[in-house]
Amino acid sequence: MGAEMIERMTTPEGREIAYEALPGTGPGVVFLGGFRSDMEGTKALTMRNRAIAKGRPFLRLDYSGHGQSSGRFVDGAVGDWFADARAVIAACTRGPQVIVGSSMGGWIALLIARSMPERVGGIVTIAAAPDFTEDLMLREFTREERARLVSEGQIERANAYDPQPYVITRRLIEDGRRHLLLRDELRLPMPARFLQGTADTEVPVAHAYRLFQHAQGPDLRLMLVKGADHRFSTPDCLALVEAQTTELVDRLKTRV
């Protein structure tokens, strides 16, 4: 499907970010991965290969502390990873892009749309997790865990997708509060497609519905896939992601 062309750039904050920017014609697609994910995941590679087959520009990247980028995961926070994505998008793409964000990548995609709407021609989210540090993480902590987070600066929590526990830092929670999206107005002037599995135990359907109800825009759709889990990586789920992405790319072509 084409040899990888991984490049690196240094952000204004001094973080070295690994990315791949594939050339093509027409509007491009940007893929943003999730919490502790990287650009070698199933969804990222599937979208990469389909972009090559269709000759469309495509960008994927590893946030700092993820994959091939510099830094340690435990030192990072949502604001850092948002800044990483924004810097790479600004430097490596031209014109409006269709941003595809998975889980935490959906939160970052929405932050990108809010901060540089002229560069976002459409959004596709997969189990989007805006405000997850506050609403899906901190809310589940026990009183003891909250106390240790304050006194020790971090705690460990088991998860269903990695044999190693996640290290959750106080900085991650506090930084997340500076980037919350579901408390204030969230206007999306571009079309947005929110994809969600009903069997997702990490980001429940209620959270997807809350985002859908909260966001304001002329063309927003929430699509539920019965039985799909958080990975959203079955052939049918991947085909749905591609179909929605292609729809928004094709619509964007008529505007540019």
Rank of each mutant, 00 (worst) to 15 (best):
P96L: 11
P204E: 06
A243P: 01
G227M: 11
A160E: 09
F82T: 03
A18H: 01
S233R: 08
S115L: 02
E145M: 11
D135F: 11
G227W: 12
A91V: 08
Y19R: 04
M9E: 15
G26V: 04
D162G: 03
F141P: 01
R177F: 07
Y161V: 12
E20Q: 13
G101A: 06
L111E: 10
Q154G: 01
I126A: 02
R48H: 08
Q213D: 10
I112V: 15
W81L: 07
M190T: 06
V74W: 00
D162W: 05
A87K: 06
P165W: 08
T169L: 11
T133V: 11
W81G: 02
V78C: 10
A215D: 00
M116R: 08
P130A: 05
P130T: 02
K54P: 00
R8V: 08
D131K: 09
R50W: 15
V88M: 07
T234L: 10
R148Q: 12
R187E: 13
L32P: 03
F58G: 09
Q164V: 12
A208F: 03
D184M: 07
D62N: 13
R48V: 11
E242Q: 13
M9H: 08
I17Y: 07
S233M: 04
M47N: 03
L195E: 02
T133D: 14
D219F: 03
V74C: 07
S103Q: 08
S115Q: 14
A147Y: 04
G121E: 02
L59W: 00
E247D: 14
T133G: 14
L138H: 12
G71L: 07
A85Q: 00
M190A: 09
S64M: 05
D219L: 00
P163K: 04
R146G: 03
A91F: 13
R177G: 11
L45E: 15
G28S: 07
M5D: 15
P191E: 09
V167S: 12
E145H: 07
I108V: 15
L181S: 02
A208L: 01
L181E: 02
A192I: 03
A199I: 05
A129R: 06
Y209N: 02
D80M: 13
M1E: 13
P117G: 05
Q97I: 00
G14D: 06
L110C: 08
H66C: 15
S233Y: 00
